[in-house]
C-alpha cells in the first residue's frame, strides 16, 4: 500500500515540477518580450545573432534539406511504383518538405547548433558573474541578452526554412531526374501544380514559432544555470533536449490546428 502511495506521490511531484517549470518559462518569456517595444534597443546584438542563426546555420540546414528531399523521393518511388503512381512523387515531396521536413529539420539543426551555443554562452556569463556585472552597469540583462536572441530566433528560422524548402524540392528533383529517369519538365510542372501558398505559409509560421522556442530554451536554461562548468554543461544539454521536444510537440499541435480538416 505504501509503495502505491509513494508512486502516486512521486507522480504528483513530477507533475507539479513540470507545471512550476512551465510557469517559470512563461514568466521568463513574458519579461523578455516586454522589452521588445521598450528602448534602448541592442541592434548590434540582434544583427549578430541574426547572422549567427540565419547565415552560419545555412550549410547544415541546406545539406540536411537537400538529402531529405532526395530520400523522400526515393522512398516514395519504392512504394508508389507498385501502384504505378510515380506521378504523385513530386507532389509528395513538395508537401512533405514545405509542411513538415523543412521546418522540423531546420528547427532541429538550429536547436542543436544555436540553442546549445546560446545556453553555453549565457550560462558561462552567469557562472562568471558577467550577468551580475551587467546589472551593475545600468544594463538590464534580460533586455541585453535574452530579448535580441528571441527576436533573432523568430526572424531567422523562417528564412532558413525557405532555403530548406527550395533545397528539399531540389533534392527530390535531382534524385527523380538523375537517378529515376523522370522527365525534368514533367517533374517541375507537377511540383508547381502541387505547390500551395498555404503549405509554405504555415511552414514559415511554424518556423517562426520553432525559432522562438529554440532561443527561449537556450536563453532560459543558460540564464538559470548554476554550479560552474558542470552546471553550464547540464544547462546546454537541457536546452537542446527541451527545445527538440517542444519543437516536435508544437509541430503536432500546429499541424492539428492548420491541417486537421
Amino acid at each position: 500500500m505504501n509503495g502505491v502511495l509513494d508512486s502516486v506521490a512521486g507522480l504528483g511531484r513530477t507533475v507539479l515540477d513540470i507545471i512550476r517549470t512551465a510557469g517559470r518559462v512563461a514568466l521568463f518569456a513574458a519579461v523578455a518580450l516586454s522589452h521588445v517595444i521598450r528602448p534602448p534597443f541592442y541592434w548590434r546584438i540582434l544583427w549578430g545573432t541574426l547572422v549567427e542563426i540565419g547565415y552560419f546555420s545555412l550549410p547544415v540546414v541546406a545539406l540536411t534539406a537537400l538529402f531529405s528531399g532526395g530520400v523522400i523521393a526515393l522512398q516514395s518511388y519504392t512504394g508508389f511504383a507498385q501502384y504505378h503512381a510515380q506521378n504523385a512523387i513530386a507532389g509528395i515531396v513538395i508537401l512533405a518538405v514545405t509542411r513538415e521536413l523543412g521546418p522540423v529539420l531546420a528547427g532541429l539543426m538550429v536547436a542543436g547548433r544555436v540553442g546549445a551555443a546560446m545556453s553555453a554562452e549565457i550560462g558561462t556569463m552567469r557562472v562568471t558573474d558577467q550577468i551580475d556585472a551587467l546589472s551593475t552597469l545600468s544594463t538590464n540583462p534580460m533586455k541585453y541578452l535574452v530579448t535580441p536572441r528571441l527576436v533573432a530566433g523568430t526572424l531567422a528560422l523562417p528564412f532558413l526554412v525557405l532555403v530548406a524548402d527550395i533545397l528539399g524540392v531540389l533534392g527530390g528533383f535531382t534524385v527523380c531526374v538523375m537517378k529515376l529517369d523522370f522527365s525534368a519538365s514533367a517533374y517541375i510542372a507537377a511540383t508547381v501544380a502541387s505547390l500551395k501558398v498555404m503549405d509554405v505559409t504555415v511552414g514559415l509560421v511554424k518556423a517562426a514559432i520553432f525559432g522562438f522556442l529554440i532561443a527561449l530554451m537556450g536563453c532560459y536554461h543558460g540564464y538559470n544555470s548554476r554550479g560552474g562548468a558542470q552546471g553550464v554543461g547540464a544547462a546546454t544539454t537541457a536546452a537542446v533536449v527541451a527545445a527538440s521536444i517542444l519543437l516536435l510537440t508544437f509541430d503536432y499541435l500546429l499541424t492539428d490546428v492548420f491541417f486537421s480538416q
Binding site: 556569463m125 562568471t128 558573474d129 558577467q130 551580475d132 556585472a133 551593475t136
Partner: peptide, 10 residues
C-alpha cells in the same frame, strides 16, 4: 563594482 574574477565580457 569590481567583481572577484573581473567578470569582463568575453
Amino acid at each position: 563594482m569590481l567583481f572577484q574574477n573581473g567578470a569582463l565580457f568575453d
